[in-house]
Design a protein around this nucleic acid. Structure first.
Lengths: 343, 343
DNA sequence: GTTAGCACTCGATCGGTTTGAGTGCTAATC
DNA sequence: GATTAGCACTCAAACCGATCGAGTGCTAAC
């Protein structure tokens, strides 16, 4: 469905203006600000056509037009002008990557905060490892207190999980080390999800000495329900309240509540279909509560199988150009950084 | 400044009513709902006195009275009736402690969420270890990838810190174990804050073999700037938007923004003066942004030196009775749980 | 000391009018 | 045939005044 050039330009002008002002756009505005060669009456006719084609909605008879989701779709797919970042912005971003952070959590949080303060959109940063790719490389038991032992699981991809175990009786550090070595060699390559089962099996035939430890591990190793998520950080939630679309407190509350629910955020960030950059508009976001929002994600699969996703959420009237530029740049940098940390 | 019995009762009635409705309370309301023996005119006289004494404010001439911060202070200090939790509530709380969670973070988050959904106030749970009490018990190096090693620091109090190090050259697991043992014995009892310095010292005279590792540790051990905070979880931020006092989006935004800033939350939670239960009203909360809020905290020092604090924040018109009961019960349970986990 | 009564205050609410930004349609113009 | 000027029409928002009602303070009577 090609739009002839002028309609196309007018539609673009309307969307641009609406994104800027959040106010329904009238024909005179377009004629004055964007298409001075054309009279408002002409624009009116075009707008009428555009409405018929499904690109515009009118809130009521005398209120100007508002872009439809279909219009936004066209906008991001075809109308976006590349919008290079300013020098300051690039500098700002680079600063995030400057300070060293050896914890993914810290880094994620810092990036989420920086991006949200930069764009005024709420930002989430997630690193997850698909469950079926997480295989044990080796494990190590570290004594913590008399009957408490910290279990460290290192996966083939280099991510680390820990959990605290309580064992029946005290064990000497040296013995723990020996047990760690034995178990490591026996369990190497086992997917984490099958770890408890494997341990149970070993438990049956292990010598009595390490029996208690293995049993404790089998029973207390956390089920891998959602633990394939390595890190999740959300920043700038309160920014949402600046948008006029959330001056209605009820709406704001519903959305904020979504952004406080870890599972929902994860689900929102997980629906990019393997695309590096993805824009989901309105209902495409997948949640009822976000049907008036758009979500832009940048997502990179690292060589070790982990997937890193950065997402920004805002009203459908989003500065897509800006957000896409920022996300593609930061996403890439973050991907590179994580990759680099990894070898 | 003793208030004679009747004034006292009337003030209490006013505060109770205002906490419930958020609407300025008039003399007739009190006379009808709370003091049916007295006419509204009498109440009016009393209220006039109470205003003069500084316990009541009137938003404007004909709008009823609103309790002042001074009134709330009196209320929490002297007027609170013990408010035992219902059976359901107790059950609900106990359920939080049921499922086992071996990570303080998980447990904190779960409790924060449960409490906020139960009371509708925003809840924060924090466990911190005063910096000067954190002394090394032992450490362990765990191989992760070729040139990456996970450093586990276990403190005397049994908390665990980890950080990822990059070392110059690959080292065999067995050697790492040996190095761990040597360093553990040499560094036992060293406060974490002095760890980098101590390591540097050791670095000078260590054999070349482990030199690289020690140097990496010295350089890459995170400075203990804010890392004495072990865990912080905030739940139910969006609940704030239910209160009529935050129907003004600007106010809501300011407060939410505070609750998104880790340092500010930590500071809000840290100002109880060693009290087990503390109530801070309005400006007593210490931040400009929270001068219309109250914060109730329950705080327990564990035998290992860690301090666990649970805090709830809401408008000064808070259900202090309820919140205090919940917090004292949960605070104690959580304290016991952590204590128990600890030996 | 308490209360009934009354004048007064002042925000909230309600109905009606005005305003102004916008549309759609038609007829004249390029 | 496309463009535009002109005009009637629509409708939310702003404005306005009247009214309402919850509240007060004061005074005089009980």
């Amino acid at each position: 469905m090609d739009l002839i050039d002028r309609k196309y330009r007018i539609l673009q002008a309307i969307i641009d203006d609406y994104i800027l002002t959040a106010l329904p756009v009238g024909s005179r505005t377009i004629s004055r600000k964007y298409e001075q060669k054309l009279s408002s009456a002409t624009i009116r006719n075009e707008m009428s056509d555009l409405e018929e084609l499904g690109y515009l909605d009118s809130p009521h008879t005398s209120a100007g037009r508002v872009p439809s989701n279909k219009a936004y779709r066209l906008y991001v797919d075809q109308m976006l002008r590349p919008m290079p970042l300013s020098v300051e912005e690039t500098a700002f971003i680079n600063r995030c990557f400057d300070r060293r952070a050896n914890q993914v959590e810290d880094l994620s949080m810092r990036i989420a905060k920086a991006l949200s303060s930069m764009t005024r959109y709420t930002t989430a940063v997630m690193t997850r490892t698909p469950r079926n790719e997480q295989m044990l490389s080796h494990l190590q038991l570290v004594p913590v207190a008399d009957r408490r032992v910290l279990l460290i699981l290192v996966t083939k991809s280099g991510t680390v999980k820990q959990s605290l175990l309580e064992i029946g009786a005290g064990v000497a550090p040296d013995e723990l080390y020996t047990v760690s070595r034995i178990l490591s060699s026996q369990l190497e390559g086992v997917p984490l999800s099958q770890l408890p089962g494997e341990l149970m099996r070993l438990c049956g035939r292990s010598e009595t000495g390490i029996h208690a430890i293995v049993r404790a591990m089998a029973e207390q190793t956390p089920p891998e329900s959602q633990s394939d998520i390595v890190a999740l950080a959300v920043g700038g939630r309160s920014n949402l309240l600046s948008f006029p679309e959330y001056s209605d407190v009820e709406k704001a509350k519903a959305l904020l509540s979504v952004l406080e629910t870890r599972e929902k955020v994860v689900s929102l960030l997980s629906q990019h279909g393997e695309m590096e950059l993805s824009v989901r508009i309105g209902p495409e976001t997948g949640l009822e509560e976000t049907k008036d929002c758009s979500i832009v994600t940048a997502s990179y699969r690292l060589s070790d199988g982990r997937v890193n996703t950065i997402g920004m959420i805002g009203p459908t009237r989003m500065q897509y150009g800006k957000v896409l530029s920022v996300l593609s740049q930061v996403g890439r940098s973050l991907g590179d950084l994580l990759e680099e940390q990894n070898d």
